[in-house]
Design a protein around this nucleic acid. Structure first.
Length: 302
DNA sequence: GTCCAGGGATGTG
DNA sequence: CACATCCATGGA
């Protein structure tokens, strides 16, 4: 296997490769990337071309080294640019976290988190279809089972490639899921409703009726949320989850999330879950950064 | 087997 | 808009 291309990617000041790696290591059942010897491996598809990205830290801590592996041309600038763009989006490299740290340095809920997890970026899900599916799959079940369902979906319907003795999977394309019937998905062992939601969402995206641009241009977080909630299978929780992790709306806030409730309970050493009113009061100072605040609090859960 | 959990849908006020 | 009820399944 030849290394086709290698390049450096600058990272922001508030950035810790290790913290991000720790987050990415949270599930042994993750199927869309692999971690070996402090390097991250993930397949990327660009207009029919497929390569594997290898991402590693540099000693200077100011950059990462990206290598592209696979059967591709050695001068493929398009692939290199796509890989750089994907990684920038995935690790949220273009965001200045300094204002978030200033805002929360004496916040009762966050002051410890921002020290413990300093340099953690909100790891994104740049692909809209993947983000929506992950949200739908993760509804009403434990994270562990959500990973199992995702793995079954990806291994059954996603493209894969072999590279240096490892198999890498790509998330299924909406067009491929749109063609399926509920029966085709029942082998994954999830509810009939979830099967319907995935297929309907795939259809919307495959037919061009739902795009990232549409949501980003909706005019406001509230309007983007309305658009998403109008889709069957997407309620407030899933809508905010997707706006947070895919559209990167900084004030998206899945206030009903049980993980968020447990994290708050843990940090405040409460003997019960906080009420919605309490959460609204506690989160008011995070205005403009609620998504990051949520992501940092979730970090307490694993 | 029993019961609860977690989020969405639906219906009612 | 808030609220109540039902759903279908996994997990204890």
């Amino acid at each position: 296997m030849k290394i086709v291309q290698s390049f450096e990617l600058l990272v922001p000041t508030e950035y810790s490769f290790t913290e991000n790696l720790n987050y990415l290591s949270r599930s042994p059942d993750e199927c869309l990337y692999q971690i070996r010897q402090n390097r991250i491996y993930k397949a990327l598809s660009v207009q029919g071309k497929v390569a594997v990205m290898e991402i590693g830290a540099n000693a200077d801590k100011q950059s990462m080294t990206v290598r592209l592996l696979g059967e591709i041309a050695s001068d493929d600038k398009q692939l290199q640019e796509a890989a750089a763009a994907y990684i920038r989006a995935w690790f949220d490299l273009d965001r200045d976290l300094a204002p978030f740290y200033v805002l929360t340095e004496s916040d009762p809920l966050l002051e410890t988190a921002i020290q413990s997890f300093y340099g953690l970026r909100m790891i994104g899900i740049p692909d809209l279809f993947e983000a929506l599916c992950w949200g739908i799959l993760g509804q009403q079940i434990h994270l562990g089972y959500a990973y199992t369902l995702k793995k079954r979906l990806v291994e059954a319907f996603g493209q894969s490639l072999e590279c240096e003795g490892h198999r890498y999977f790509l998330f299924p394309k909406p067009e491929d899921i749109a063609r399926l019937t509920v029966q085709d998905l029942q082998g994954l062992r999830m509810t009939v409703k979830k099967c319907e939601y995935l297929i309907e969402t795939a259809r919307l995206i495959a037919e061009g009726h739902l795009t990232k641009e549409q949501l980003l241009n909706a005019g406001s977080l509230k309007l983007a949320e309305k658009r998403l909630v109008s889709i069957r299978g997407i309620g407030p929780w899933t809508a905010h989850y997707v706006l947070m992790r895919c559209l990167r709306m900084q004030d998206a806030f899945p206030i009903d999330d049980v993980g968020l409730h447990n994290a708050i309970r843990h940090v405040r050493r409460m003997d019960r879950k906080p009420t919605k009113q309490e959460i609204m009061e506690l989160s008011a100072p995070w205005s403009g950064w609620r998504a990051y605040a949520t992501f940092y609090l979730w970090r307490y859960l694993y």
